[in-house]
Amino acid sequence: MLKSYLEYLGLEKGRFQCAWLSSAEAERFVKIAKATIESVRKLGPAKKLVRKTFAAENC
């Protein structure tokens, strides 16, 4: 739902991803990580939801 919501608001498709993954699925993890990197790389640097000023200090 979150993915659908963010994309509804206008975040680029592929910027935000989620996956069901067990700690035993190392190979699948690599595969998903690679696919995510690839899709984000295609999109280029993020412009939306990037804080331009300062982040809070004590987080």
């Binding site: 804080r51 000023t53 300062f54 982040a55 809070a56 200090e57």
Partner: peptide
Amino acid sequence: IQDEVIDNKGR
């Protein structure tokens, strides 16, 4: 009053 810091800059 709040402090905000990013990397080595803050306000």
